[in-house]
Each structure stands twice: as structure tokens, then as C-alpha cells.
Design a protein around this nucleic acid. Structure first.
Length: 427
RNA sequence: GGAGAGAUGGCCGAGUAGGUCGAAGGCGCUCGCCUGCUAAGCGAGUAAGCGGUUUCAAGCUGCUUCGGGGGUUCGAAUCCCCCUCUCUCCGCCA
């Protein structure tokens, strides 16, 4: 959420930043609403002030056994007036709030201006696209041939965009989760979190999924619960409505969760294989930091995610998203894209963002910079560290051998019972 | 699912025959004093949100907030209703 005070004091800057994002927001109408609300609030508060002082007088008179009926009569009508005005103020506040909640974050000024993903800028590459001395196969073929991925039965048991992992396929998925968590907790300083996979509407609002993107979410019929689309939601909301101690910062969390996405609007895209599923696994990185260092923290977080791909020996590149491609809550985002031979292209496998105080303001996550000063919003960041299903796809495709077997990256072998490759008939 | 108890400031914890309670006391924290240093001791300060004033901040000031929502009342932490969560006991269950 944007600070209404910022919009008030600097409307032109806000308009420009939102225009760079290619979104339409009627800032002037918002300001009119804000002015109305403040005027009315000032009026009610004056009446309330009067009521407070007179009520005190009434109390005093009563204690002195004097007559106060005159004053009581008078205050009765004042109270009625207050009641109706309070309702009007609340109505205006709700209107204001509902608009504010649908305005995206302002891009940081370093973010390249652009319309869509074609305008994203490559930052760096690591490794070279894998070359083969034979015709490489896509992971969906490899997975089926090796009998480690079963798309047909995923479709039968659940539906389109669900996959069953079997044998060493299931083992590989589990190995990756453990490898990633061990790396982030053991070497990068994150604390492991295992959160609920279902959250309430307040949490979804706190990180920005609601109210605007409800159609992307699965909602349960009972009990106001949503399936999480990413661990970002439960983990960031861990500290919703809290004032953190300065000494607690920075906080680094890493969490494995399943993620659930309706993929509304993605019909026909990435229909084959593991790339776009309704349910997938992800290890997420979440940070709560002081505002001053948050962009350094974004660099570090991105490198922590990159480290996963480096250790797995998967070629990738880092791009910075342009203003038009930026996610709703983000001020700046790096995407990590892994080389996928079947796409003959780099494909997103991680997204690392600095939300600055956008989520913190929505979720009310604060800290006290020093013991004497007022509370301030923290900055929140997160990134995939990394998407597990897409990593499986990348390993299958980049590590495939001519005989159809899959070489296992060395760092993963301890997690795979010591085996070096996945071959057919593995149990 | 049934029965009962509870939810107060950064933390702990008083406060319910409605008024002087934004709230005793303690811990923690900050500043000062004391001290060779540390500890102890002494004194003072220390909630948040939204407005107004102010170039900004500080300061001053108004309003709101004692789990959330609604009601009664001139006036509610205190009374009434609904909801959520936590704890205890019973039942069921991975």
C-alpha cells in the first residue's frame, strides 16, 4: 500500500511512477476523497471534544449531587450527530482504503522503463547453454520414458496441470527440497520455517494477493481459507501487526511449501511438462530488514538463490524486470532464468523482489530504529530459492545422457542415496 | 463436536455496583546521578493509529484504541449481544 501522505504531498511523482508501470489510477479523485474524509473527521472530532468535556462536567455535578439534566439533554443530540457523522467518515475511509489497496507499488527509480517482458534487461549470465552430441529430449519425454513422471495419471487423479512423481523422480524432488533448505540455513544464514499452507484473507491482503488477484487463488468453500500461492504469504505475515526489535533485524527466513495457483489466464501456455502446474513445490527466501540496506539485501538474496543453480551446475541468467513487467507489490525485481533445452531458451525459475515498505504498510510490520524514535515500517523482500519442479525439469533436460539416463549433480548425490544417475527401472 | 476459563501497553500483570483510567505495580529500554570498571542503587522518562498546527522534523494539540464487531448510556477496559483466538476437561481423530 502506498502512503496516503506521500500521494498527498507528491501527487505528480506518484502519477509518473504509476504511468511508468502502465497502470491507470485516478489520483486526483483519490485526493478529493481524502480531503473530504479529513474535513469531516475534523468536524466530528470537534464535537467529540465537546462531548468529552461536558461529560466530565456531568460526572462532577452528579458527584456533587447537582442537577445535570440540562446538559444531558444537550449532549444527547450532540451524540446523535456524532453517530451519523462517524458513519459517514467510516464510509469515506472504506472507499479510500479500497482504492489504496488496488494501487501497485511504485517502481524504484533504477528500474528500467518498459512495457512488458520484451523490455526486461539482462544483468549477467552464468554458464553456457548446454550442448549435446545427440538430439536432446524435453523433460516430459525423459520423465515418462524413465517412469519417474506420470502426467496421464496426474490428470486422472486430479486434472490438467497436475503431475505424479514416481520412484527416483519423487526422490529427486525431495532431494532438491532438502538440498536447498540445507544450503540456505547452513550457509546463507536463514532460519527454516514450515508454515501453514492455508491462510486467511488478512494474510493474503498483507502481501498483496488480495483484493486484486482473487481469481489467481484457490479459495476453500469453508472457513475463509485460501491455499497459498507461495510461502511468501504465510512467512511474511508471520510478523503482521508486530513491532520488531531493532536487534531482531535483519530476519532471514527460508521455507519449503507446496504452492497452489489457479493459473487463470494462462490457458495454452506451458501446457506440457512440469513448468506450469496448479500445485508445485518451492523453497522461498524471505527477509525483513531496515530500509537503509534493503537494496544491498536484495543483491545478497538474489545471490543466495543463484547459488542453488551454481551448485547444481545449471546455466542461468539474471534479468531485471522493467516497470511494465513488475509484480504488483514489488519496487524492484530480478528474475533468475534457467536454461531449458526443450524451450531453447532461458525460463524463469526464481523471482527476487524488494517490496520496500509496501507490504509492511499493508501488514503493519514495524520496528523502532532506536529507543527514542517512533516506529517505522521495515522493508520486506523475498525470492524463490528456487522453484523445485522447474529445477527437476532443468536437471532432467540439462543432465540427460545419450542413453536416456540422467546424470545427478554431485551436490545432490548424498540426498539421492549415493546414486550417480537415474536409469530406467530404478525402483 | 460438548463444557468451562481467559484475551489489557515492548513483556508480565492490576483494574469490572459505568465518570478523576490510556490505564496501578513490576520487568525491559532511554537519559541523568552515583561508581576505578561492571553490577547494584537513586531520579526522570518510556504505547500505537488518524487528524490539526509546522517548509520538514521536533514540539504543541484534538480524536480514537484495553482481542474484533455491534448495542445500551450524556459518558464504557468496566453492562448487554455476536464473532475470533488461546488454555483446561470430555468426545472424535492422523
Amino acid at each position: 500500500m502506498l502512503d496516503i501522505k506521500l500521494i498527498r504531498s507528491n501527487p505528480e511523482k506518484v502519477k509518473q511512477a504509476l504511468a511508468a508501470r502502465r497502470v491507470q489510477v485516478d489520483i486526483d479523485a483519490l485526493l478529493v476523497l481524502d480531503q473530504k474524509r479529513r474535513d469531516l473527521q475534523a468536524q466530528v472530532e470537534e464535537l467529540k471534544s465537546e462531548r468529552n468535556t461536558v461529560s466530565e462536567d456531568i460526572g462532577r455535578l452528579k458527584r456533587e449531587k447537582q442537577d445535570a439534566s440540562q446538559m444531558i439533554m444537550q449532549m444527547k443530540s450532540v451524540s446523535e450527530k456524532i453517530k451519523t457523522m462517524d458513519e459517514q467518515v467510516r464510509e469515506l475511509e472504506l472507499q479510500l482504503q479500497s482504492v489504496l489497496l488496488t494501487i501497485p507499488n511504485l517502481p524504484n527509480e533504477v528500474v528500467p522503463i518498459g512495457n512488458d517482458d520484451a523490455d526486461n534487461k539482462e544483468v549477467r549470465r552464468w554458464g553456457e547453454p548446454t550442448t549435446f552430441g545427440f538430439e536432446p529430449k524435453p523433460h516430459w519425454d525423459l520423465g515418462e520414458t524413465l517412469d519417474i513422471l506420470d502426467f496421464a495419471r496426474g490428470g486422472k487423479v486430479a486434472g490438467a496441470r497436475f503431475t505424479v512423481y514416481k520412484g527416483m523422480g519423487a526422490r529427486l524432488e525431495r532431494a532438491l527440497i532438502n538440498f536447498m533448505l540445507d544450503l540456505h540455513t547452513g550457509e546463507h544464514g536463514y532460519k527454516e520455517i514450515f508454515p501453514p499452507f492455508l491462510v486467511n484473507a488478512e494474510s493474503m491482503t498483507g502481501t498483496g494477493q488480495l483484493p486484486k488477484f482473487e481469481e489467481d487463488l484457490y479459495k476453500l468453500r469453508e472457513g475463509n481459507y485460501y491455499l497459498i500461492p507461495t510461502a511468501e504469504v504465510p512467512v511474511t505475515n508471520l510478523h503482521r501487526d508486530e513491532i520488531l526489535a531493532k536487534d531482531d533485524l535483519p530476519i532471514y527466513y527460508s521455507a519449503y511449501t507446496a504452492c497452489f495457483r489457479s493459473e487463470a489466464g494462462a490457458h495454452g501456455r506451458d501446457t506440457r511438462g512440469l513448468i506450469r502446474q496448479h500445485q508445485f513445490n518451492k523453497v522461498e527466501l524471505v527477509k525483513f530488514v531496515e530500509p537503509e540496506g534493503s537494496y544491498e539485501e536484495l543483491e545478497k538474496l538474489t545471490h543466495d538463490a543463484e547459488d542453488v543453480l551454481k551448485q547444481l551446475g545449471l546455466p542461468y541468467r539474471v534479468i531485471t524486470l522493467c516497470t511494465g513487467d513488475l509484480g504488483f507489490s514489488s519496487a524492484k525485481t530480478y528474475d533468475l532464468e534457467v536454461w531449458l533445452p526443450s524451450y531453447n531458451a532461458y525460463k524463469e525459475i526464481s523471482s527476487c523482489s524488494n517490496f520496500e515498505d509496501f507490504q509492511a504498510r499493508r501488514a503493519s510490520i514495524k520496528y523502532r530504529p532506536d529507543s527514542k524514535s517512533k516506529t517505522e515500517y521495515v522493508h520486506t523482500l523475498n525470492g524463490s530459492g528456487v522453484a523445485v519442479g522447474r529445477t527437476v525439469a532443468a536437471i532432467l533436460e540439462n543432465y540427460q545422457q545419450e542413453d536416456g539416463s540422467i546424470l545427478i549433480p554431485e551436490v545432490l548425490r548424498p540426498y539421492m542415496g549415493g546414486i550417480e544417475k537415474i536409469i530406467l527401472n530404478d525402483k
